[in-house]
Amino acid sequence: MDFEMVPLTHYLFLSATLFVIGVTGVLVKRNVIVVFMSIEIMLNAVNISLIAFDRYMNLHDGQIFSFMVMCVAAAEVSVGLAIIISLFRNKPTTNLDEFNIMKS
């Protein structure tokens, strides 16, 4: 490698920015599916941190960990979307504020 590498902090900045964008999405949006997508953004932001640290310490554990994060994300998405579908069947809306069936 004869060219200059990106400093680790830049990757961490990117990761933090994406994570905060995801948090904002979860806080601000009222559509279930978009809130779900914001959670995906947060998971991805964490993956950047893991892999950046991995690269800069010359380990492989972070990559395995982000692999596991991807597994969990896939499982979460499949179950979550199934829940959204069955909720939609119960009440045809995707607005989070209208889902208060557990508050009796």
Partner: peptide, 18 residues
């Protein structure tokens, strides 16, 4: 195993009514 459980859970959840 987690993925298997998620798959079964998704099928069960999407099939039945709440």
């Amino acid at each position: 195993i987690l993925l298997l459980v998620a798959m079964i859970g998704a099928v069960v959840l999407a099939k039945s009514k709440v």
